[in-house]
Simulated scan of single mutants.
Amino acid sequence: MAQDAALLTARLFADGYCIVPIAVTQEAIAALDRDVSSRFAATPFCEGDFYGARTKRFGALLRRSSHVAALVRHRLILDIVEAALSPYCQRVALNLTQAVELHPGALAQIPHRDEDLYGGPKGEIEYQVNVLWPLTPFTAANGATRVWPGSHRIGAPADPGGDPGIAVIMPPGSALVWLGSTLHGGGANLTDTVRRAVIVGYTLGWLRSFENQYLVYPPDIARTFDPDLAALVGYAQHLPNLGNVEGQCPSILLRDPSLDNLAAIDALRPDQAAALRDYVATQEAARAGLIGG
């Protein structure tokens, strides 16, 4: 497969998912796997049929491994994500980072659409894009994620019935990208070894994130991030003025934790700013005419 953002985005919209082959080195993935191994060992199994009784999950990965930022900010992946989501928002935001470990005996996850988190109308816009990075080889036997091609289309059934879907077989270093409207689910682990992966999710910048980024990465942690990563996490306004702190960009908290004596500053889209300038200029001209008269 070509490493071409336009081609991969076309496949994403055509099928509801695409595979980015060898997006990072296996050495980088191995280093990330080493960083999270002890956390997997200390994490209890999930509770509930959706998360899975033979599955372990944990988030906040940007503060658990220095190798996660490269996945979150992978330029090719972001090009695909932004192409999918930018028609519906001014900026995208990080939705979650989550490590997942399927143990032997894990059952197949119910086919589901991630966009069902949100109560808005379906089929009109895309709400999110998720990316799965295998830490161990994905096989049909060890629980490789299953996808249902075309299930993102308007009118596609929410229940695939007897259709088993496609098991996405990938080596570490490759990535599976899918739309929030695409049916998918973890497979059953029929082997005697664990299957590990990291999920990085992105959403429209005006939506509430699956993982509460501001609690996971409070200012004392986020100020160690570079500005672009901090903005992706949420320390940036979505124009116009959404997500402000005392009328300013929340990135101010990364420079100065004091919230006293701040002036509110407009943060508008260019079209809004231009319309506002014209509106104000008209009033000022009218006022000047009155004074002059």
Rank of each mutant, 00 (worst) to 15 (best):
P171L: 13
G247P: 02
V194Y: 05
S209L: 01
H238R: 12
F225V: 11
M170L: 15
A188N: 03
G234A: 00
D271E: 14
G201K: 00
L179M: 13
L262A: 01
G180C: 08
V216G: 01
P250W: 13
G205V: 05
V233P: 01
C249N: 15
G187Q: 05
S258Q: 12
A231W: 07
A267E: 06
S181M: 08
P171S: 15
P171Q: 15
Y235P: 02
V177M: 07
L215P: 02
G247E: 00
W178F: 15
L207C: 04
G247I: 01
L215D: 03
L207Q: 01
G187N: 04
P240T: 15
V177H: 02
L276K: 12
A273E: 07
L215V: 10
D271S: 08
L268D: 13
A273S: 13
L232W: 03
L176P: 11
P219A: 09
N244Y: 05
C249M: 04
A175K: 08
V280I: 15
R269W: 09
A274T: 06
R208F: 09
D256F: 03
R208Y: 03
N189S: 05
I221G: 06
L183R: 10
Y214H: 14
P227N: 08
D266A: 14
T224D: 12
N244W: 07
V198S: 00
G205Y: 06
L242P: 03
F210P: 01
G205Q: 08
V198E: 00
A175I: 04
L276Q: 05
T193N: 09
N261F: 11
L253W: 00
V280R: 14
Q213M: 14
Q272I: 12
H184Y: 10
L242C: 06
A275N: 12
P219M: 08
G173C: 10
E211I: 01
P218W: 09
P240A: 15
V198F: 00
R255F: 13
A230C: 14
R208Q: 12
D260C: 09
Y235D: 08
E211A: 06
I252K: 04
A273F: 07
H238W: 10
I265W: 06
F225L: 09
Y217A: 10
D278M: 02
T193Q: 14
T182G: 07
V216D: 02
L262V: 08
S209Q: 11
A175H: 07
S209D: 03
S209H: 02
N241C: 11
V245L: 14
G173R: 12
R277I: 10
L179A: 04
D278I: 01
I265Y: 04
V198G: 01
P227S: 05
G247T: 00
L276M: 04
C249Q: 10
L204W: 03
A263H: 07
A197C: 10
G205H: 08
E246I: 07
T193L: 13
D260P: 01
L190S: 11
C249D: 15
G201T: 02
G234M: 00
F210D: 11
D256C: 09
L239P: 09
P240Q: 14
L179P: 02
V245H: 11
N261R: 12
P270Y: 09
P240R: 13
L229V: 09
D228L: 11
G201R: 00
S181T: 04
L176I: 11
